[in-house]
Amino acid sequence: MIPLVPVTREDRIDRNDLSGVREDLPRIYLAMLRARVLEDKLSSLYKAGKIVGGVYLGRGHEAVSGSLASYLHRGIDIFAPLIRDQAGRTAFGESLMDVTRTYLGSVEGPMKGRDGNIHRGRPQEGMPAMISHLGSSVALVAGMLMARRMQGRLEGVVGATSLGDGATSTGAFHEGLNTAAVEKLPMVVLVVNNQFAYSTGNDRQFACADLVDRARGYGVAGHKVQGNDLIAVAETMKKAVSAARDGGGPQLVVADLLRLCGHGEHDDASYVPAEMRASGLARDCMQVAEGQLIDAGVFSRSQLDEMRAQAVAEVQSAVAQTQQESAPHPHHDDWRTMYHGELEE
């Protein structure tokens, strides 16, 4: 885990004008908080030997991911999360039990033990289940939106997906974004530049001055935001989502921040240089958000503490219940790979 840079009074983004996001902040923060508390628990479960495979956290991504999905509507919109989007998943309405069941391998979970950790979703409820191959969600969401256009139910719909700086180097990202632009789809493509793709820094990942410069090349609108500043992020996401919803075509949002953890919990991120750990990028969006919420009079410290205690209890209860559930059994799984069982070999 990256040691947190203390948030000083000077660091706080001191704004009286909340640009119309004030009423959105409570639900965004709640999603951020629930995600952080949940992920802290997942880390603990991993480090106690209870989770096999891996645990991949979105520590530091909560404001960006949670804000984007807070402006989407489950049942109408599409949200295709990636590896560090617990806050977005939570904001989009993913149940706590879907998370704990998938991580702990419960047969009751949406993936039934056939896939694990972040590779989960509810595709029929607008949240596809990611695969590990980066960039593949861009075209997927584009296709989902094209289907809705052909079905005459695209009006007022937004499709969003989230990626990192590493994913922008893939052909899939390029092909997908270009296709979305050609089709002028109501899409938000969030690129969180968290400075590292696993251990590889930006200098070995891309050569343009800023990833948002690419928006012009694709012919899409570009937005740039400091990713650990909740209010700035909320404003940007609100703007981008509205623009997409109102027919402005694909919106590329690039948010800068520092991943405040390793690639997975097996990785101690020792490659992150000290000066970066001490920079403004390393400020924890949770602490920044809490300061902003208190300053703006949205929540008091005691309310925040109460919310956290509530979140901890919810997570603890979900984990306790999940641990009592059955693991998948190789003799009871039907091993089916296709809807048409008769066409299985």
Partner: peptide, 11 residues
């Protein structure tokens, strides 16, 4: 581990 230094937790 040969990859990293980590903490073991209690649940």
């Amino acid at each position: 581990t040969n990859k990293a230094t980590m903490g073991v937790t209690t649940l």
